[in-house]
Amino acid sequence: MERITEGDQIRRWNDHIPLQWKYTAGVAGERFLQLLKQGKIQASVCRSCNKTYLPPKIFCKECFAQLSEWRDVPSDSGYVYSFTAVNGEIIALVKFDGVDGGLLGRLRKGREGPRIGIKVKAVFRRKEDRKGALSDIEYFERTGV
């Protein structure tokens, strides 16, 4: 049986695969991001399944209908579904009342530590700094108590 028995006979081949992509956001994503740039959050709605999608979809994942109805999601109606401290920041999955789905973002540290369920609002970047990307929401912060 052929096996390497001496350490200096072992070889490795080192190489890399440099890859670059340019992603479009899609029909629903394009519309969502253009609105986000204006400081608005919109979700798409499937009436027959009573589903509201955020980030929005052009299709209902349940009944597979094409969706064309949209609704505003107030940017101060969020709550923390879960959060984690990672790389010195707090990342939260923020959900909104009556919406399936939610948005991922950074949670600004307050005086008290975060908890599941606390109410939060989206804080947008200055208009001139927005790029039409999820990062146009600079962070979420706690509203009231």
């Binding site: 992509w21 992603y23 956001a25 899609g26 994503g29 991001l33 980030p55 579904y81 879960s82 959060f83 984690t84 401290a85 990672v86 790389n87 920041e89 990342i91 939260a92 999955l93 948005l103 991922l104 599941i116 990307a133 999820l134």
Partner: peptide, 25 residues
């Protein structure tokens, strides 16, 4: 998802942290 869930500079296992906390809750 390249548009909504890649968080540059954040360890991609962030989702495991989110899930563990929610599960415990």
């Amino acid at each position: 998802d390249p548009t909504f869930a890649r968080l540059p500079g954040i360890d991609p296992r962030y989702l495991a942290g989110l899930e563990m906390r929610r599960y415990m809750e």
